[in-house]
Design a protein around this nucleic acid. Structure first.
Lengths: 191, 191
DNA sequence: ACCTGAACACCGTTCAAGT
DNA sequence: ACCTGAACACCGTTCAAGT
C-alpha cells in the first residue's frame, strides 16, 4: 500500500479528515474522541493529523466551520420566510450538534483558534439579525436586542426544551426583533 | 506527620478539597487543572480525592454547588430591588466564573452527575423567574418567557459584551418578564 | 474509616527518519 | 511534501496495602 505522497490532492485529503472528525465528534463527543481513534477512522496514523492540523482544537474549528458553511447554504433558501420560522429551523437544525456548540464555548478560553472562530461566528449571525431590525434606533440598543436574540437561540439549541416551549421561544425572539424600537422606552418616549 | 485518620471532621476535610478545587478551576480552568496538581494544592495524594469524590466531574459539581449557595445567599438581600438591577448584579457576579459555566454545559452530555446538577440549577432559577411573571397566562407561554430570560443571562455571562450592551440586555430581559402577558398575541387578542 | 505507593491504560503531541 | 514508528510527559482512575 502507498504510505506517503498519496495521489489525492491535499485539500481533498484534509476534507476527508474533517469529515471523519465531524462524524466522531458528533457521535461520541469531542473529549471522548481521541486523536488515535480519529486517525484509525480516517485510516492514517495519529501523527498525520498533525500534518494537516496544528492541534485538536484546530480540528474542532474545521468541523465547526464545515457545519456553519452547510447551515448558511441551506438557510439561503429560507431567507424570505417569517423570522420565527427561520429561528425554529435553525434551532432544530443545530440541536443534533448541540454538544459541538457547548464544546466550542468551553474551549474559547483555552484555544485562540477556537476563540477567534467563535467570535467570527457571532459576527456572522449578528449581521443577519441586524438586517431584520426594521426600525432604526441607537447602536447600543440594537446590540442589546441582537445579543438577546442570539443567546435565546443558543440556549434553545443547547438545552432540553419541549416542542411548544421551543416554538414559543422562537416566536418571542422574532417578535422582539421586529418590534424592538417600539418597545424601547427611550425611543417610544420620543415619537 | 499524621498520614491518615486525621483529626479533622470529614465534612470540613471535604470542604477544604472543594475550596482548593474552586480556586484552581476558576484560576486555570477545569481541563487545565489535573487531579495531581489539585491534590498537591490540597496537600494530599491524588488518590485521596477519590475517597471524597467519585470522579473529577463530581468535584466540578461540588464546586458549582458551592458557588450557587454563595450566590443565592448574597442574592437574598437584593430580592426587592428592580429586576433589571438584579439581573445586572447576577451577570457581573457570575462573569468571573464564566469558564465554570461553560464547562458545566459541555460536561452535561458526559457526566450524569453534572447533568442532574445542571437541571436542578435551571429549576431553581426558573422558579425565581416565574414568581416575577406578574400577569397570569398559559403555562407554555410562561415557559417560553422564562427560557428566554434564562438564556439571555447565561449568554451575557459567557460572552464578551461591553457594559452598555450588558445593561441593555438586562433591561430588555426584565421588561419582557414584566410585560410578557401584554405582548403575547394570543392573550392580548382576547382582553 | 481514611490515606498512600505504585501501577494501568490512555491521552495529545513531537521528532527524527523514511519516501 | 507527505507520512510513519517510536517515544515523551502527562492524564484520570484503580487497587492492594497500610494504619
Amino acid at each position: 500500500m502507498p504510505r506517503n505522497r498519496r495521489p489525492v490532492p491535499k485539500e481533498q485529503r484534509r476534507d476527508e479528515l474533517v469529515a471523519a472528525a465531524a462524524e466522531l465528534f458528533v457521535l461520541d463527543g469531542y473529549e471522548a474522541t481521541s486523536m488515535s481513534r480519529l486517525a484509525k477512522q480516517a485510516e492514517v496514523t495519529p501523527n498525520t493529523l498533525y500534518w494537516y492540523f496544528r492541534d485538536k482544537d484546530e480540528l474542532l474549528v474545521a468541523v465547526a466551520e464545515r457545519y456553519l458553511r452547510a447551515l448558511l447554504h441551506e438557510h439561503a433558501s429560507l431567507a424570505d420566510r417569517p423570522l420565527a420560522e427561520q429561528f425554529l429551523w435553525l434551532v432544530e437544525r443545530l440541536r443534533p450538534v448541540r454538544h459541538l456548540v457547548s464544546t466550542v464555548h468551553s474551549r474559547v478560553a483555552v484555544s485562540d483558534a477556537v476563540r477567534s472562530w467563535h467570535d467570527s461566528f457571532h459576527r456572522t449571525f449578528e449581521e443577519i439579525f441586524e438586517r431584520r431590525l426594521t426600525s432604526p434606533f441607537a447602536a447600543e440598543h440594537r446590540a442589546g436586542e441582537v445579543a438577546a436574540a442570539t443567546f435565546a437561540l443558543e440556549g434553545a439549541i443547547t438545552h432540553d426544551l419541549d416542542d411548544t416551549t421551543t416554538r414559543r421561544l422562537c416566536e418571542i425572539t422574532a417578535d422582539r426583533l421586529h418590534h424592538a424600537a417600539a418597545l424601547n422606552p427611550a425611543t417610544s418616549a420620543n415619537p
